[in-house]
């Protein structure tokens, strides 16, 4: 009988809806005009449709960002849902753009959409990858920097998912500490 198995036709729903953003550093335009939503998605199939048809992060021009955030949260610390939070930051060296960047970004996205942070998944806002000549950066943004245990567990799960060796330390920066300061002077709230 040619009755279709529903499993093969129904898209697999995600716990959350997500928006993928693109930022291109066009100095001739206002910063906010350079930041746009590519699309939103709330199923596994739509995620793959999007991911398979967008340029890999490693091939973006310098100065560009990709961000994937829960629908309703803008990829900026000023957003009410980001303000009290912070980000786990992974700094890549120049050679890691070709060796690690795309894998790190995909593994991070799979953790996001699959709710891979267990009971702490509600504390996740989104993730951003910044393509920069001086070294690319990947950030996982959380909702509340004061939730220390939850934030540390999120950091450990991120390292585990990206196969970051335990001896490599990553740092968590609270947005309230970084707002308006040059990147290098910022002190990590904690590390794992």
């Amino acid at each position: 009988d040619d009755v279709l198995d529903p499993e093969s036709v129904i898209k697999h729903p995600l716990q959350n809806s997500w928006a993928m953003w693109f930022f291109k550093n066009d100095k001739g335009r206002d910063w906010k005009d350079n930041l746009r939503v590519i699309t939103t998605f709330d199923t596994v199939e739509d995620f793959w449709g999007l991911y398979n048809h967008t340029l890999p992060a490693s091939r973006l021009q310098s100065g560009c960002d990709y961000s994937v955030f829960k629908a309703g949260i803008q990829p900026m610390w000023e957003d009410a849902q980001n303000k009290k939070g912070g980000r786990w930051l992974i700094n890549l060296n120049k050679s890691q753009r070709q060796t690690h960047l795309d894998d790190f970004w995909l593994e991070t996205l799979l953790c996001l959409i699959g709710e891979g942070f267990d009971e702490h998944s509600d504390d996740i806002c989104g993730a951003t990858v910044n393509i920069r000549t001086k070294g690319d950066k990947l950030g996982l943004w959380t909702r509340d920097a004061n939730k220390i245990e939850a934030t540390k567990k999120i950091g450990l799960k991120l390292k585990e998912s990206l196969n970051v060796p335990s001896k490599i330390v990553i740092g968590f920066q609270a947005h309230s500490d970084t707002a308006g300061k040059a990147g290098s002077t910022v002190k990590n709230r904690f590390t794992v």
Binding site: H12, P13, V44, G114, E115, G116
Partner: peptide, 18 residues
């Protein structure tokens, strides 16, 4: 309530489904 969770292997498996 219940949470819809997909582990990495399930998501990769669904990457290639039609």
């Amino acid at each position: 309530g219940t949470r819809i969770v997909y582990d990495r292997s399930r998501l990769m498996q669904l990457r290639n489904s039609p």
